[in-house]
């Protein structure tokens, strides 16, 4: 894995492509505390040669150059990453949403995005048999669905 300055993203990709790693295996993003990271893995077809490069994006400026001029196959990955993480790939030739209809709000794969369905639907595990009249009250036992953040859903939640 190689950390790459964001401004050199496309330059580095072009150099990797020129060195024979011509197949884009994967392009996605990972959310960290400080912001997001865009991850790409490129491989040399027919061999085990591969490289993973990572560029960090600050939370207040989620933009990065599109890889499509170098790897045309990145177009689909970038469309998905853009709508799922809210990243703008500048220079993408066709930045239409891939899966989401427009107007759906926050990017679904960001940790701060609350799944509306899980807010609307009461969690059946909230019920406490020893105090059936006080569902949802703080309890010694865990009374929060698995995998949701502290303060969920009322306070927005932080990891």
């Amino acid at each position: 894995m190689r950390l790459v300055p964001r401004d050199e993203w496309r330059t580095v990709l072009a150099a990797l492509h020129a060195s024979g790693l011509v197949y884009l295996d994967l392009l996605t993003a990972v959310e960290r505390d400080a912001g997001l990271e865009v991850v790409a893995r490129v491989v040399r077809p027919g061999s085990a040669a591969a490289e993973v490069i990572v560029a960090a994006l600050p939370a207040d400026d989620l933009r990065i150059d599109s890889a499509v001029p170098v790897y045309p196959g990145a177009a689909w990955h970038e469309r998905e990453t853009a709508e799922m993480f809210g990243i703008e790939f500048t220079g993408h030739p066709d930045p239409r949403p891939l899966l989401l209809r427009t107007g759906l709000g926050a990017p679904p794969l960001r940790k701060g995005t609350v799944l509306a369905a899980r807010v609307v639907q009461p969690w059946p595990g909230e019920f406490e048999p020893s105090r059936p009249d006080r569902a949802g009250s703080p309890s010694r036992r865990r009374a929060r669905p698995l995998g949701v953040l502290d303060g969920w859903p009322d306070e927005g939640g932080r990891p």
């Binding site: 639907q121 969690w123 059946p124 595990g125 019920f127 048999p129 020893s130 105090r131 059936p132």
Partner: peptide, 9 residues
Amino acid sequence: WCISLQAHP
């Protein structure tokens, strides 16, 4: 979340 349960002490 497909299971629901009601009980009393």
